[in-house]
Design a protein around this nucleic acid. Structure first.
Lengths: 148, 148
DNA sequence: GTATCTGCAAACCCTTTGCAATAAG
DNA sequence: CTTATTGCAAAGGGTTTGCAGATAC
């Protein structure tokens, strides 16, 4: 029991509900995103697909991203150096990011207190909370020792 | 006692230490930023200055922002609709943002548990923490009732 | 006096979009 | 068959930059 649908199945249903089409291009992009265990930006995703001889246009990637976000399969995690970075979230526990401001290294972490904070904000300000994003920046052990 | 330096004094010293110059343009931009009690983006700051007949080029604003961030006078708070929003932080308690995804309304809040979380992350991962940014998104009371 | 700063306009770069050909359902 | 999607290339739009004149110090 507790069979979990794959991201492809989820997305296929999502598209069907919107009267949209499931195409090979969309499928290969999603596969590539979910095969990557890292955060990604459009350009590096595009390059990594080209290196594997998977031909899709950047426009198709750009057009797909808002759909994947709406379907709750990916999330924008941070904006850095003029571009947005995303990560796939389907099938993963929600987590936050501790990022080294010097080398870019990212440490993921989760903290149960954030749920409490969300709940209290909902009560206090009568908001319906959708999500939270906690980004902590600092210097990782290596960069700290190099005192950059 | 406990005389607090003004943002202008702080910045003047910051520039001096870097062998840079304190100009009337820089001064008027900082004044405008600190007179505004809201978050701002470059374009609206520029427009609001022009309306008061203060003439500075956008380029000067863009060139000033990284300096103000380095001097810890302002901070980038979120990226939305293709542009970055900032707020002045000097002289204010650190706080986080609860943002309505529908109308853009922002509720500020602070939570002491975030300091604890920072401290624990520092211990656990040996990072030297610089700052945190918690962004909570949801629907404000009004937008929630309109069920957008 | 000298090196920094300013304004302007052009360049940049990520992202979006119009269009004609293609393909999903 | 009909309507959505694709790739391409051009347009958009925020941000950066080269340059010549102005100006802090």
């Amino acid at each position: 029991m507790n069979e979990m649908k794959s991201e492809l199945e989820i997305f296929r249903e999502f598209l069907k509900n919107k009267g949209m089409r499931y195409t090979p291009e969309r499928e290969t992009i999603i596969k590539e995103i979910f095969d990557t265990h890292d955060h990604f930006d459009v350009d590096s995703l595009y390059i990594s697909m080209r290196q594997k001889d998977i031909r899709v246009s950047k426009a198709s990637i750009y057009r797909l991203i808002p759909l994947l976000i709406e379907a709750n399969l990916i999330e924008a995690v941070f904006f850095e150096g003029g571009q947005m970075y995303y990560e796939h979230i389907y099938g993963h526990e929600h987590h936050c990011h501790l990022r080294c401001i010097n080398c870019g290294r990212i440490q993921e972490f989760a903290d149960p207190r954030l749920r409490d904070i969300e709940q209290e904000l909902a009560d206090r300000f009568s908001y319906q909370i959708i999500r939270h994003k906690l980004e902590v920046t600092g210097l990782c052990p290596e960069c700290r020792n190099r005192q950059d």
